[in-house]
Design a protein around this nucleic acid. Structure first.
Ligand SMILES: NC(=O)c1ccc[n+]([C@@H]2O[C@H](COP(=O)([O-])OP(=O)(O)OC[C@H]3O[C@@H](n4cnc5c(N)ncnc54)[C@H](O)[C@@H]3O)[C@@H](O)[C@H]2O)c1
Ligand SMILES: NC(=O)c1ccc[n+]([C@@H]2O[C@H](COP(=O)([O-])OP(=O)(O)OC[C@H]3O[C@@H](n4cnc5c(N)ncnc54)[C@H](O)[C@@H]3O)[C@@H](O)[C@H]2O)c1
Lengths: 213, 213
DNA sequence: TTTTAATAAAGAATTATTTCTTTATTAAAA
DNA sequence: TTTTAATAAAGAAATAATTCTTTATTAAAA
C-alpha cells in the first residue's frame, strides 16, 4: 500500500530552539550602539556555523545585505514577532511550590508573549495568597477557569506523581499545550502538544561530558 | 591538505537526553511489581520508535532477552550507573534568587549524583543564611572555595547581565562544566563544557506549535 | 522434541540537520 | 566608472539520527 507523506514545510525545531539565543545576543549587541551585524560576526560569537545561522534567519523571513549584514533592530523585530512576543498567550500554572514560585516571580516572561494569569494548588495554606502578583486558586476551580478564559497553555510544576492526572484534567477542559517541568512522562492524545523542561536531561549531558573528560 | 576526522564513538546526545526519561518511566513501572519489560512495550508507552529505544539501551551496554525483554531492576541499575547517580559530583551555585532557591531546595537532586555544596551571592541580606540546608557565602569566597574543594560544576542563576563574568571567574579558578540557567550566551574556552537550560527555547517551541495550530 | 511467536540485534534505508562549495550581490575603494 | 572584497543566498555534500527491514535468538506451546 502506498502512503503519501505529508510535507509540512515548517521551521526545524533546532532552529526554533536557537532563535531566543540570537535574540538575547542581538539585544546585547544593540546596546553597544552598533546597527548592522554580519553572519560571520554572529557565527563566531555564538560558535555556530555561519551557514546554519544564515539559514535560521532565512526561515523567519529576513534577509541581509551583502557587504553590510543585517539591521539589528529589524532582526530583533522579526525574531520577537516570530517568537510570538507581541502576542498575549495566557497560561495557568499548577503547583505553586519551589519551582512554581520561581516561575511566578520570574520577570523574564514579561518580555515574551506569555502571561501566567492564575496558579492552582491543593495546599490550603497557599490558596488565597498571591505569588508574583498571581493569585493562587484551589485546584477544583481549574475546570471552570480554563473553560471560561479559553486558556491554551498549562504549566505543570507539581510533584511528579500527580503530573499525569493534572495533565488529563487540563486536556479534558480544553488546554492545547502542556509545559511539563516534572520528570513524569506525560501521555497526551494527538493534537495536544507536550513540551518538557527536563533538568535531568541537562544534568545527564553535563555528567556524561565530565565522565568522559 | 588532508584532515583526519577523529572518530569519537560516544553516545549520541539525543540518546543521553532520553535516558533520564527511561529511568523515570521504569521506576514507575517497577512500582507496579512487574519485573520484565519489552522494547515494544516501552516504545508504545513513551511514543518513541522501538528501534530507537533498543539502540539507546544498547549504547549503555545492556541487552535484553528475546521473548522476555529486559529486567527492569537491572535496567534501572545500568541507567543510574551510566547517568552517574552513584557518583558524587560536587557543584557550586551562584545567584541564590528565585530560581537558585528552587534549585537549592530541590529534593530531586538527592537521587542523582549531583550535590550542591555551597551557594554564593552578593546580596548581604542573603549571605550567612541557609537555603535547603546549603550555606550562602559571599561571592568573593568563590575562588578560594573552588580551588580548595576541587569543584568541577558551576551553576549560574544570577541575572543575565553578570552571567559571563561569573563564568569567567569559575573557569579561571578551575571549574570544568557550567550549567547556565540564564539567557546569556556564555563564551568559554575549548575544554570547558557549557550546558544551557533555556526556558525561552522551550517556550519558543510551545508558541510555535500553538501559532501553527 | 519440534514448532511457534515474541523479541532483540544487526544492518539498510530514509530523513533531518549541518557543513561545505559555488554563485550572486553590493557597498566601498581605486 | 571599474574593481575589489565582504557578504548573502542557493545548492551540494556530508553527517547525524531515526525508522524500516531482515535475521537471529529463545522461551513457551504444541
Ligand atoms: N525545585 C526545582 O528547582 C525543580 C527543578 C526542576 C524540576 N522540578 C520539578 O518540579 C516539580 C515541583 O518541584 P518543587 O521543588 O517546586 O516541589 P514542591 O513540593 O515545592 O511543589 C509542589 C507543589 O505542588 C502542589 N501540589 C501537590 N499536589 C498537587 C495537586 N494534586 N494539585 C495541585 N497542586 C498540588 C504542592 O502543594 C506544592 O505547592 C517536581 O516535579 C520537580 O521534580 C523542580
Ligand atoms: N525565576 C525563574 O523561574 C527563572 C526561570 C528560568 C531562568 N531564569 C533565569 O535565572 C536567572 C535568575 O533568575 P531569578 O528569577 O532567580 O532572579 P533573582 O533576581 O531572583 O536572582 C538573582 C540572584 O543573583 C544574585 N546576584 C546578582 N548579581 C550577582 C553577582 N554579581 N554575584 C553573585 N550573585 C549575584 C542576586 O542577589 C539574586 O539573589 C535569570 O538570569 C533568569 O533569566 C529564571
Amino acid at each position: 500500500m502506498e502512503t503519501k507523506k505529508q510535507i509540512v514545510s515548517s521551521t526545524p525545531e533546532p532552529t526554533i530552539r536557537r532563535l531566543p539565543m540570537y535574540l538575547s545576543y542581538l539585544k546585547n549587541f544593540l546596546s553597544d550602539g552598533r546597527e548592522y551585524i554580519s553572519a560571520p560576526h554572529i557565527a563566531s560569537d555564538l560558535r555556530i556555523d555561519a551557514t546554519t545561522r544564515t539559514k535560521d534567519l532565512a526561515y523567519i523571513g529576513i534577509s541581509g545585505k551583502p557587504k553590510i549584514g543585517y539591521s539589528v533592530p529589524v532582526l530583533i523585530n522579526y525574531l520577537e514577532e516570530f517568537l510570538g512576543y507581541n502576542r498575549n498567550d495566557l497560561a495557568f500554572l499548577v503547583g505553586a511550590g519551589n519551582l512554581g514560585t520561581a516561575l511566578l516571580k520570574y520577570e523574564g516572561f514579561k518580555n515574551t508573549g506569555l502571561r501566567i494569569v492564575a496558579a492552582f494548588d491543593n495546599d490550603t495554606r497557599k490558596i488565597g495568597g498571591k505569588i508574583g502578583g498571581v493569585e493562587i486558586l484551589p485546584i477544583d476551580k481549574l475546570r471552570n477557569m480554563i473553560e471560561r478564559m479559553h486558556i491554551a497553555i498549562g504549566i505543570i510544576t507539581t510533584p511528579e506523581g500527580v503530573a499525569q492526572s493534572i495533565a488529563d484534567m487540563m486536556i479534558g477542559w480544553g488546554i492545547k499545550a502542556i509545559w511539563n517541568f516534572t520528570p513524569a512522562i506525560i501521555k497526551a492524545p494527538e493534537g495536544i502538544f507536550v513540551e518538557n523542561t527536563s533538568i535531568y536531561s541537562n544534568l545527564a549531558v553535563i555528567i556524561n561530558k565530565i565522565q568522559n573528560q
